[in-house]
Design a protein around this nucleic acid. Structure first.
Lengths: 139, 139
DNA sequence: CTCCAATTTGAAAATGATTATCGTTCTCGA
DNA sequence: TCGAGAACGATAATCATTTTCAAATTGGAG
């Protein structure tokens, strides 16, 4: 029913090579082109959605477009995994810690809001970009 | 230098009437049309950006477009204000509490990531949509 | 191995939010 | 009242994503 094609293999291979690193559809297209196995954008989007639907990839929607990445965490234990998005360089970083368990529980019990940690993005400025800012500030 | 026009007044008035409620540009356009003071979309975007730049409005970028709202919190004390976004109904809700101070401090000191609470959206399902879901699940 | 129906592909058009363009209109101080 | 600067709004442009549809590919049956 679901055919295996060289395009579908190329897409998945690309993610397996980079583990948790997040990619946009355009970046993936560029990467595939670079590696000689060019795939049309429409096809890329189709595979990304299929992989996300099957749970093999995580899709995170942002104002700058969607990011896709492999993630070992399942829906259940994903409360230990946070996504940090740098508004300066645009990159998404993964962070593991249990710091927010209490807060999420508080939100759910007191405010009846059930968090989806996989769609929650902490926005801010990452260490690298923070350092650059300091440099710029000097006369 | 900055002229006062009936359009700029209408836009700001719309937000003042709804306090912290978030609006998209399209919703604002519809609201203004309804109230008889129709304003072109281009002009609406111009005023929204101007108001956001001057700090009178907060602009939150999401995958579904930008939301704008009045918010009493300044950049400094905004760590006490959270934005919850329901992935079901799309609405953004404000929540005041100091629960995350520690986490933000941890992120900054241990992981050198400086959070911007005004751009951070906690995604999930709000109480109302949660209730509806329960109804749907029944045979 | 060949055939063929079902599936996949990709170029191009459609979509939706936002921004840029550019004459026209408005505002307000001289 | 005048006029320069500012604001307006219809329209075109942009950008990520989705849809369309004819052509190419896949894999099971014969």
């Amino acid at each position: 029913m679901a055919y295996t094609t060289k395009q579908s293999q190329a897409v998945l291979r690309c993610f397996e090579q980079r583990r948790e690193e997040s990619l946009t559809a355009a970046e993936l297209a560029a990467e595939l082109r670079r590696s000689g196995s060019s795939v049309g954008l429409a096809t890329i989007y189709r595979h990304l959605d299929k992989l996300a639907a099957s749970g093999q990839l995580h899709k995170v929607n942002t104002a700058e477009g969607a990011f896709y990445h492999l993630c070992a965490h399942t829906e259940d234990n994903h409360r230990d995994c946070f996504l940090l998005k740098c508004s300066r360089c645009g990159r998404i970083r993964h962070l593991d810690c249990t710091h927010l368990h209490d807060f999420y529980q508080h939100l759910e019990q007191e405010h009846h809001f059930r968090i989806d940690p996989r769609q929650t993005l902490f926005a801010g400025v990452c260490d690298l970009c923070n350092g650059e800012e300091a440099t710029h500030g000097t006369t």
